[in-house]
């Protein structure tokens, strides 16, 4: 099981809310947020995904040298991409995502994130050939070790580009 830290930061919450076009002041206005039943700024429901910034094993992590990753991920031609196997990052899509919330995320929380593989299975897809599904279960705990949130992600590797 891989572990890494995830400090919940007010600026990161603001940036995330802006990216999902959410103007709710609970995500940035401290005075407003204090007067709500939440008692302070909270994170949007899908914010925990931003822990990717702190995951040293995350393949699309920004603090890596992105151009190098693009070269590595990109085959030389479309034909090569189409024949690419499971190792081709262009063929990995997000199939499903679930969150279970135990406590709200507030700025200042220092979370520990642990990730483990879940189930995996195969399916014959009508749009993308043979589909290989695999689950990743991510637990977020606070400094006392109490569970804050569980995120379950299902990824799928397609044999070719999904015809949308």
């Amino acid at each position: 099981m891989a572990e890494h830290e995830f400090p919940v930061d007010r600026s990161a919450i603001l940036t995330f809310a802006a990216a999902i076009g959410d103007t709710n002041p609970i995500y940035w206005d401290e005075a407003y947020a204090k007067a709500t039943p939440c008692g302070g700024i909270v994170a949007p429901p899908t914010f925990a995904i931003a822990s990717a910034h702190w995951n040293p094993h995350y393949v699309f992590r920004g603090v890596r040298k992105i151009p190098a990753r693009v070269e590595e991920a990109a085959p030389r031609s479309e034909a090569a991409a189409r024949s690419g196997g499971g190792g081709n990052l262009a063929r990995v899509l997000h199939a499903e995502q679930r969150f279970e919330y135990k406590k709200p995320l507030h700025p200042g929380m220092r979370l520990i994130v642990s990730t483990r593989p879940g189930k995996s299975w195969e399916k014959q897809g009508k749009r993308g050939g043979t589909l290989q599904f695999s689950e990743t279960v991510t637990e977020y705990r606070d400094e006392r070790g109490e569970l804050v949130l569980v995120a379950t992600s299902v990824g799928v590797v397609t044999a070719k580009a999904v015809e949308s």
Binding site: F16, R61, V70, A74, S77, A81, K160
Partner: peptide, 20 residues
């Protein structure tokens, strides 16, 4: 914001030519 820099979401050349 999310930290997902998969080029398929922002790099047109990668999305069209490499990924199809």
């Amino acid at each position: 914001a999310s930290g997902d820099f998969n080029p398929i979401h922002h790099d047109e050349t990668f999305a069209t030519q490499a990924a199809g």
